[in-house]
């Protein structure tokens, strides 16, 4: 086996080796990430940076403006916190959710049906699973950047009162991962754009009712149970615990919820991969 292989022969050789899911996965997700990075470089940076302003503006407007009306609120463990400190972690969880859902539903669906990028990628030795995972990773990377920036703002405003707050960054990525994986799975069932519009629209009540702006104790207990089954509530609670360093078994429970959600979403996505890409 001493023959000299050209780069193209090596590439062919590598794909001939056994690997899991050989019909849909080539093990070259890195190329998808590289492309994302290349595209960002030639794009307007303003658009990337602007994504960070949304949660910050929300925090400023609601935290201070509304805070003047609301006063202090009961935080995790029953301690009174300012309204800004109460909603800041919720804003971070919500922005992680919104970004991930948008990227994995509208964005992916648009590229699949109208954009030509995925079509071009799938003409090469990339498999659909490489493309899907690469797309999720890119969304998570963006989420990571926003989370770091948001946490810096929180710290500057004195809203993060514990070193545990640093864990809000990986927590944001975990929340985004869960939503992105499920979003991608849901997209595989979508036939038309309008159906995804409705998914985006369903995010609104989830945002409004998941203890983001006020505690769920104002609801009857049946409604509370329903909200507690929804993912965003777990994300908000997880963030709130970390922000003040109030860690309990419940904190771990919330994190587990998202781990399970991620696993489920990835499983559905993998199973539906052919339906999603090879139609």
């Amino acid at each position: 086996m001493s023959r000299e292989l050209s780069p193209t022969q090596l590439a062919v050789e590598r794909l001939a080796r056994p690997r899991p899911a050989p019909g849909i996965w080539s093990g070259n997700m890195v190329a998808v990430l590289e492309r994302g990075w290349q595209a960002i470089k030639t794009q307007n940076w303003g658009i990337i940076i602007s994504g960070f302003f949304e949660p910050v503006l929300y925090l400023l407007a609601m935290g201070w403006g509304l805070g003047a009306l609301v006063g202090e609120v009961e935080g995790p463990g029953g301690a009174k916190v300012s309204y800004a400190a109460y909603i800041a972690p919720a804003m971070l969880a919500t922005s992680a959710m919104n970004g991930a859902i948008y990227d994995s539903t509208m964005n992916v669906f648009f590229k699949l049906n109208f954009g030509k990028l995925y079509q071009a990628m799938l003409q090469t030795s990339l498999g659909p699973l490489d493309v899907a995972l690469g797309e999720i990773m890119l969304a998570l990377f963006r989420g990571l950047l926003y989370a770091v920036a948001f946490l810096a703002v929180m710290a500057a405003l004195g809203l993060a009162t514990s070193w545990w707050a640093l864990l809000m960054v990986p927590a944001a990525v975990l929340i985004a991962f869960g939503f992105a994986a499920v979003g991608m799975g849901v997209t595989s069932f979508a036939q038309r754009f309008q159906q995804l519009d409705l998914i985006m629209f369903a995010m609104l009540p989830m945002f409004l009712f998941s203890a983001t702006l006020y505690p769920i104790s104002v609801y009857p207990s049946a409604v509370q149970l329903f909200i507690q089954a929804l993912p965003l509530w777990h994300g908000v609670e997880l963030m709130r615990h970390l922000a003040v360093g109030h860690l309990t078994w419940a904190t771990l429970g919330h994190a587990t919820y998202f781990t399970a959600m991620t696993a489920l979403g990835l499983w559905v996505t993998t199973v539906r991969m052919r339906k999603l890409f090879l139609r």
């Binding site: 509304l66 009306l69 609301v70 006063g71 609120v73 629209f201 609104l204 009540p205 409004l208 009712f209 702006l213 006020y214 505690p215 104002v218 609801y219």
Partner: peptide, 21 residues
Amino acid sequence: GQPLFYLVALGVGLGALVSAN
């Protein structure tokens, strides 16, 4: 959906916090 959700969440939910204050 919008009027329903906003009126419940802001008017009733958030409103409870404001009046509690």
